[in-house]
Amino acid sequence: MEAAIETNDGEELTERQKDVLNAVLRLLVEEGDRLTMTAVARRASCSKETLYKWFGDRDGLLTATVRWQASKVRAGNYDRQHLDATALRASLEGFAANWLSVISSRTSIALNRVAISHAGSGEDNLGAIVLANGRIAIGERLKPLLEAGRDAGLLDFSDTETAFRTFFGLVGRDVQIRLLLGDRLELTDAEIGQDAADATRQFLALYRAKTGAA
């Protein structure tokens, strides 16, 4: 289930608005930090007035775009009240594979490169936007699964943030930094699936409860 993304007036995105955000992602791949509201309006076949109404200023548009991209990373569907070892493992592997697929996409690479280049430059708030609505938001999406695993007696940890950071590190390894630095790393679906399974196995080896069988 996708996380709900809202426009400037608090309404959930329509399909037309999602098309606009996809246009922003394509422009970021093509033009990098030269992205303008005028270019977005032209590519998305809408007026700048409409963009301002829906998303506010450029930062608002970028925020919605980051949230839209990050919403593609999901922890999957699981029954918190009846979570067992098999469902926990499957949900963790699904999240890992989902996240690896998203961060290795051309759109995510372009978005993160622009954010890094702007961080601390004062040009805009894209770095903070990506941090808050990307990595932090994704963490808040996965933490309930980790806590559900602990409540079910399958996982053992005292701090949810630490557990999440461990899993995040095991999944990402050096993949994202290599991609951002131009490594022509092309992950196949099979490789992503194997990496996700390996990261999950390593995480469970560290955090499996003594009485759990995950």
Rank of each mutant, 00 (worst) to 15 (best):
V40S: 06
L27W: 01
F164N: 10
E161P: 05
G193D: 01
D59A: 03
V40K: 10
G182L: 09
A85G: 09
A190E: 15
L83T: 05
D189I: 11
G94I: 06
T211Q: 15
R34P: 09
G32M: 04
S105R: 10
Y207D: 01
I116L: 14
R80L: 11
L142E: 04
F203C: 07
Q81S: 11
D195L: 15
D9G: 02
A41S: 00
K72P: 02
R106G: 06
G182E: 04
T14K: 04
T38M: 14
N98D: 15
L154Y: 03
K72S: 08
L179R: 07
E30W: 07
L61F: 03
A196M: 02
N8E: 07
G139E: 11
G120K: 06
L61M: 05
V73D: 10
T7N: 12
F168N: 12
K143V: 10
K143T: 13
F168E: 06
S104I: 05
A115R: 01
A44R: 06
G172H: 14
G120Q: 06
N125Q: 10
L155D: 00
F203H: 03
G10T: 00
D174L: 13
A44M: 02
L185D: 12
G193N: 01
K72I: 00
I138K: 14
Q81T: 14
L206F: 09
G76S: 15
D59P: 02
A199D: 00
I116R: 14
N22Y: 12
S71G: 13
I192P: 04
T162I: 13
R113N: 04
S45C: 09
A132C: 12
T14S: 07
Q202I: 12
E12F: 11
V20C: 03
T86R: 11
T166R: 11
V73P: 06
G134N: 00
L187K: 12
V130M: 11
T14Q: 06
G193Q: 01
T38S: 15
T211A: 15
K53I: 07
S45V: 14
A97R: 09
R173P: 00
D183K: 02
R80M: 13
G94H: 11
A196R: 02
T50M: 09
L126K: 04
G10S: 02
G149Q: 03
V40F: 01
E30A: 08
G153Y: 07
L88D: 00
D198M: 10
I5P: 00
A41Y: 02
D195N: 11
R34I: 02
L111W: 01
N22D: 12
S117F: 07
L21K: 05
T160I: 13
P144E: 07
L179V: 08
G32F: 00
G169Q: 09
A190M: 09
N133T: 06
L154F: 03
G56M: 00
N98V: 01
L28F: 00
A190S: 06
L142W: 01
L131D: 14
A148W: 09
C46E: 05
L142P: 04
